[in-house]
Design a protein around this nucleic acid. Structure first.
Length: 473
RNA sequence: GUCCCCAUCGUCUAGAGGCCUAGGACUCCAGGUUUUCAUCCUGGCAACAGGGGUUCGACUCCCCUUGGGGACGCCA
């Protein structure tokens, strides 16, 4: 039997990390079993569903590389089918019309709550003498009264819910449109879904859905309810912390590979292994490895993974993603090939592509000003002589290479009998404007002789200004 | 309130009754390597929620308590 899984978001917002992880698990399971992965858009709530949200979800999925084999299927395109099934249920007496107004229902709930009962529909329209079609009504599913529903959950084991806990849920609204718990059932059935992998906030919906499935004579799929993701503070994800769309992670400078790796390890594990590329995930993923407890999102670990992938992924791949951020930050790179050299150098000091791009800025643009602290500390009057000598030595190099630049620095040190700090740091501030950077000889070799000369001259002028100022005082 | 789910370092987790003096990873701290910063290497801090059982033996099984989460919509 071919495994068919699905991801079925409702387009009422962006694709957040919780949804993305559920999608990832479903996708991995389908890929691992060489099954099929269906994307279904649950847009029956026309009030809240938006085209923009659909796009955000599609964008998020594609950025993460979670490709679907079927879909996107929109539930709003399937109303005819839903109505057909509703009619069938009605005819078979498995569903019935209910004439209570929303206000009446609200009252009922209030009273039940006040009494300390579980709020639920009391079933008073279950056995009416007549069911007129022309009066405003909803359609309810006739839920079994006796017995229990058992879920053999692939991650939780067996769960029993008594039918007495369930009420006759509404499957069609007064306006005739079908509701969630019903459309899910019809779709999962029609699409032949074999494994429903979803958030555990749906556990309570599962027995209702199983009852409808049975009434329809449909096969009940296997269920795997994965725990929720909590925010950094252990609280439920909210817009204030963590519940941002996955595209925000792109904007913030994360690699899809890093997010994927982070997400797969959140609530799932394979022994002590921390690093998984996508192929390994597919190979090693199993539903048994999914944890039962909810887990908190930890940005620091995501950062660590992101840096790991910036350092270890082929530079050409990092370069592609970096390119987006360079453009975003208005940094123009005429010769893309230098990125091959720069990425390994800079990614050791950055956690995100966003930082990577911004830290590289001085490699592509003039240094507009020196970092105040760095300049104060290193562009001192005493640095003028070493810088000047080094500049001359660099200028007289026949071959402009990192090795030769390094020996120019070393010669300067020996001739003036000074340490690295007295020449390396002034050079660093002169060239980069900042107090820290990758190795100077390599940066200089990439920048070229002319630019290095210019920048050192500028730094020397800066020092001269400073000398004059101190003399005036 | 009722029902359902969950419970190992701060966080992510390993652990399928003896392998546990509870392992790994992130963070943090201390050393080392290093042309600064970082990377990297070595070491360290840090947990089985509590109480009862079952058992020769419990982190592992059962029950209770506590704590967290979820559901209870003409939302999905």
């Amino acid at each position: 039997m071919t495994v068919i899984t699905r991801f079925a978001p409702s387009p009422t917002g962006y694709l957040h990390v919780g949804g993305a992880r559920t999608a990832l698990f479903s996708w991995l399971y389908a890929r691992k079993t060489q099954g099929e992965f269906v994307l279904r858009i649950e847009d029956t709530d026309r009030e809240r569903s938006t085209e923009a949200s659909v796009q955000a979800i599609l964008d998020g999925m594609s950025w993460l590389g979670l490709d679907h084999d079927r879909g996107p299927i929109y539930q709003t395109d399937r109303f005819d089918r839903y109505n057909e099934v509703i009619q069938q249920l009605l005819e078979e007496g498995k569903a019935y019309r209910c004439y209570h107004s929303q206000a009446e229902l609200d009252d009922m709930r209030e009273q039940q709550k006040a009494r300390g009962d579980k709020p639920r529909y009391d079933g008073s329209c279950r056995n009416l003498a007549e069911y007129p079609e022309d009066q405003p009504h909803v359609i309810r599913f006739r839920n079994p009264i006796e017995g229990s529903v058992y879920i053999d959950d692939l991650v939780r084991g067996q769960i029993e819910i008594s039918n007495s806990e369930l009420d006759d849920l509404i499957i069609a609204r007064t306006d005739g449109t079908p509701t969630y718990n019903f459309t899910v059932v019809v779709d999962d059935w029609d699409m032949g879904i074999t494994h429903v992998i979803r958030g555990d906030d749906h556990i309570n919906n599962t027995p209702k859905q199983i009852n409808i499935l049975r009434a329809l004579g449909a096969e009940v799929p296997k269920y795997a309810h994965v725990p929720m993701i909590l925010g950094d503070d252990g609280k439920r994800l909210s817009k204030r912390h963590g519940a941002v769309g996955v595209m925000q992670y792109r904007d913030d400078g994360y690699l899809p590979q890093a997010l994927l790796n982070y997400l797969v390890r959140l609530g799932w594990s394979h022994g002590d292994q921390e690093i998984f590329n996508v192929d390994e995930m597919i190979e090693l993923f199993s539903l048994e490895g999914i944890n039962r407890a909810p887990s908190a999102f930890n940005t620091e670990k995501l950062n660590w993974l992101n840096q790991h992938y910036m350092k270890t992924l082929p530079t050409s791949e990092v370069a592609q993603h970096l390119d987006w951020h360079l453009k975003e930050q208005g940094i123009e790179v005429s010769d893309k090939s230098v990125l091959e050299v720069l990425i390994p150098l800079f990614s050791e000091r950055c956690e995100t592509l966003k930082q990577l791009a911004s830290q590289m800025r001085y490699m592509f643009e003039d240094v507009s000003e020196f970092n105040a602290n760095a300049a104060k500390k290193h562009l001192k009057v005493s640095a003028a002589a070493p810088l000047k000598l080094l500049k001359e030595k660099m200028q007289s190099l026949n071959e402009w290479s990192a090795e030769n630049i390094e020996s120019a620095i070393e010669q300067t040190m020996t001739e003036l009998e000074i340490g690295m700090g007295k020449i390396g740091m002034p050079l660093r501030v002169a060239i980069t404007g900042a107090g820290q950077s990758p190795a100077m000889n390599i940066l200089c070799s990439v920048l070229g002789k002319g630019i290095c000369n210019q920048r050192i001259e500028l730094a020397l002028e800066f020092i001269e200004q400073r000398r004059l100022q101190s003399e005036q005082r």
